[in-house]
Simulated assay, not measured.
Amino acid sequence: MKEMRELWTRVEHWVDTQPALPPSEAVFGPPARAAQIEAAEQAVGRIFSESFRASLLVHDGQFVPGTGRRSEDEIEWVRWLPNQMVLLPLRDILATWREERAFEAENASAVEGISEETADDDRVRAFPTVTHAGRLPIAGQEASAYMYLDFVPDPAGALGQVILTKNECDFSVAGEDFQDFLARYVDLLERGVLRYDADTYHSVIPADPRVAFDSLIELRVV
């Protein structure tokens, strides 16, 4: 818990040093209650990883637009995560997870009979569909980019690893767990490898336009 609190303090400091962004207290939500976390775990049938539980006990994602602490605030999503994503609060995590289950049920016949193609040295399982009940969507954007906690990794992967959608059917691994991802990501922010672009994208982008986001955050196991 101490390590996660320290990481979030660094994230908050980075946000507070960005002239174009609101103060961090207006961006990130208050802590989740233990009972809320347990209810969410029961709903999805998975025990969250220790590091993600610790993160929720610091910040339950980001404020939903229009629900800032002060009535005069018009809070908008601050897209500080890769590919213009935002960190979802528990209620949106559950809503998105349920939407994906409904979509799978509706389209089950389209993937019936398709086998999974996964090699033993893969870290992310290649299911016939990208979504899976064992993948918890913890960040996303209005289009189709999502960050998941992966509770169904391939043998070479890690339970609770952080995975990102690269395209409509592939993932990259961005952290062994949420704490590993956040530590690596805030380091990129602090070193200026990533920067907040307030003019064009209104989100975090690589400082070097020749560098792809995936190449900076994808976990490489030697």
Score class of each variant (00 low, 15 high):
P209L: 03
G192R: 05
Q161I: 10
R135Q: 02
E190R: 07
A143R: 12
S203P: 03
V186K: 09
V152R: 05
Q141S: 02
F178P: 07
F178L: 08
R191Y: 01
P137A: 04
A183V: 02
V204L: 08
E142G: 14
D180V: 09
Y201Q: 04
H202W: 01
E142L: 09
Y148E: 03
Q141W: 03
E142H: 00
A212E: 15
L159R: 13
R195H: 02
D208V: 08
S172Q: 11
A156W: 11
D214I: 13
P209R: 03
T129S: 15
D208A: 02
F151N: 04
L194E: 06
F127E: 12
S203Q: 07
A207H: 05
F178M: 03
S172M: 14
R191K: 14
F171N: 08
R195C: 07
R184D: 14
A156R: 02
D214G: 11
D150P: 06
A174L: 08
V211K: 07
I217G: 06
P153R: 10
P206F: 08
V193H: 05
D150A: 01
E176L: 14
A133N: 02
I163E: 00
I217F: 11
F181W: 12
E190S: 10
D187V: 10
H132E: 11
L182G: 09
M147A: 10
F127N: 13
N167H: 03
L194C: 06
L189I: 03
A139Y: 03
E190V: 11
E176H: 13
S215I: 04
V130F: 09
A198H: 07
D208N: 07
T200A: 12
T200N: 07
A198Y: 00
C169K: 15
T200M: 00
P153W: 00
R195F: 01
P128D: 13
G175R: 10
V173T: 14
R195P: 00
E176Q: 12
G157D: 10
R210V: 12
H202I: 00
D199F: 06
D177N: 14
Y146V: 09
D170P: 07
C169M: 14
A139H: 02
T200K: 12
R135W: 13
E176V: 10
L189Y: 10
R191W: 02
G157A: 08
S203W: 01
L149W: 01
A207E: 04
H202G: 02
V173G: 10
A133G: 04
M147R: 08
V193M: 04
I138K: 06
P155Y: 00
G157I: 12
I217T: 13
P128G: 12
D197Q: 04
S144C: 14
M147Q: 09
I138H: 09
P128Y: 11
K166T: 15
A212V: 05
R135K: 11
A158N: 12
D154W: 01
V193C: 00
D150M: 02
L188D: 11
L164Y: 15
F178Q: 06
Y201V: 00
T131Q: 15
H132C: 01
D177T: 00
P128L: 12
F213M: 15
N167A: 06
D154K: 05
D199P: 00
L164H: 15
H132K: 06
L194T: 07
V152M: 09
D199C: 02
V130Q: 15
A133P: 03
Y201M: 01
L159M: 12
